[in-house]
Design a protein around this nucleic acid. Sequence first.
DNA 1: GCCTCTTGTGTAAACGTTTTCATTATCTAT
DNA 2: ATAGATAATGAAAACGTTTACACAAGAGGC
Lengths: 343, 343
Amino acid sequence: MIEKIATIEDVAEHAGVSIATVSRALHKPHVVSESTREKVQTAIAATGYTANVMARNLRLNRSGMILLLVPDIGNPFFSEILSGIEQGASKAGYNVLIGDTQNEPEREATYAAYLRSNQADAMILLNGRLPAPLANTPRGIIPPVVIACERIPGCNLPTVIIDNEKAAHSATKHLLDLGHSRIAHIAGPASNILTTDRVAGYRRALSSSGIEANPSLIYSGDFSIESGISAARALLKDSKNRPTAFFCSSDGMAIGVIVAAKELGLRVPHDVSVVGFDDIHLAANYDPPLTTVRQPRRRLGEQAISLLLARLDKTGTIPEPAENPVIVPTELIIRQSTGPCPN
Amino acid sequence: MIEKIATIEDVAEHAGVSIATVSRALHKPHVVSESTREKVQTAIAATGYTANVMARNLRLNRSGMILLLVPDIGNPFFSEILSGIEQGASKAGYNVLIGDTQNEPEREATYAAYLRSNQADAMILLNGRLPAPLANTPRGIIPPVVIACERIPGCNLPTVIIDNEKAAHSATKHLLDLGHSRIAHIAGPASNILTTDRVAGYRRALSSSGIEANPSLIYSGDFSIESGISAARALLKDSKNRPTAFFCSSDGMAIGVIVAAKELGLRVPHDVSVVGFDDIHLAANYDPPLTTVRQPRRRLGEQAISLLLARLDKTGTIPEPAENPVIVPTELIIRQSTGPCPN
DNA sequence: GCCTCTTGTGTAAACGTTTTCATTATCTAT
DNA sequence: ATAGATAATGAAAACGTTTACACAAGAGGC
């Protein structure tokens, strides 16, 4: 009484038809007669048949998988992006396979090989780096890959990002408008392209107000609360020339700055103003509620997957450049962590 | 000059051997002679061969996929669990396929069918519910499924959870020890098994201190900050019999309570103490830092995947019951949101 | 009544692997 | 020398599908 999984052959036998007919009854019902269609249906029900997807995919030379390369799946920042992607993919009949690269190029390469080995039909990169095997794709052939979150300079694959320079500019401008002039910037890791773009926006805002950016006011963090704390401790130590405002490249670091400020008995925003980046869920309920640049993470994911699906639909066709990269808009959310410059 | 992907046949031809030999050179190198092994290696390099995983899996009747059913991938709570799972799976050569069920039984059923259709070798359930197709598995056959996070009553599949009753007890006990007696509980959704368990722990702690649980002090939230805010507003309104302490079933709701308390000019912990649950990353850096029950999310994921891998290794063998469920320990982290009962 | 067109079905090839079995060549022990 | 073991390889079956092609039967037009 061994449990044997029913194959298409069992169904065919049970219905008294050929396996071809069973297959057709399932995928091209209109070419098979009403009566046999019914026979097949009852046979399927009787046998408990479920098509072996692997066999099917082998034949059709597709996998139905979309591979998603993420630097760290443990980072909640990605979860909402992921959700947007998953939803779109699922609606189109694709499954999402997560590849956690841990920022290791080797793992990126391993996963990128999934495309060649038919384990995935397409790929979305959230990791800001082109995996090695992809870099030497023969010219003229455009791999089914979409880049999201972090643009990759010199790579003209379809991309969906926010305008980091502009967002940083508007955040800094907000502080300038409040009368601040000693504005510190807690940036991301230097290696990161986001950092470059946001520093540029910060600089442009300052210089258009006639202020020269002071390099000693720019700190490199790693997006974490802890790095925000230590940056702020260092910058606020010197009570004489301390900055009156901080523009931080993540909400985490902004929170770190606030923690450090409170530690020193400074009030936010009375003594020091703080702007974050991302608008994580807690930003609105921190104390004080955080002024920040909202990053539409779900939209980012949705755009990425829809770009990819469009690409997959017209395989073979040379996709018109369209607008590339696609920019999803950010929004400066003004809450209570920013206020006028003291005296 | 069409890009044609090399198959094992191309390699065989290039090396002047049969495809069987190529396959053996790759998977059983010891049975093939040194010289041909080399020939095959150079042929592989020359052709750029990558094995077609789908064909391989079809033949081997496996998929190398572990399906992970999550109620909402957008919820950051799961990201660290996921990370633990992904790491273990990846080390064992498995890929993780995420199934976002949105709490819809229909989607759960769809995904559970992946097991039958060979799209996944095994499954981990984080959603606290047995998908319908799994419920009527013939007795005696144990499907390769592990349950994590939320136990499923009456289901004796391998399970890894925390002891919610005990954790809730220790959190409540902490408040009792500080002299509180009017202790409110902001619970999760009533339908949730976590809620039942934690309410039980809360009740047991009270009654062992000779206090009778007051039903009007128990509120049902949905784990969100917002639900914590509205619960606390309602409970703190009556300044006469207001609770002096809150035990909340999530850090989000605890933060909501603090927000609402501050709104009313109450100080935490001076006027009201608050305990959360989960120990999310921000808990330590909220104002005040949150006393909470730490839930080892990564460990949870690691345990789940290792249970599953053990199960997969000894297929056919009847797995000894072992300790089931596996309990991963929680820890009460005392920070500054709790203090002695006022007056 | 014959040709053609349509409709429904079956046969068999193909997808790219792994593995059983048979075959040959080489080696060891008598 | 010869039987028997050992080592290396190839031929072909199998995994479970989809689909090109062939075929039979009935319908319609002359």
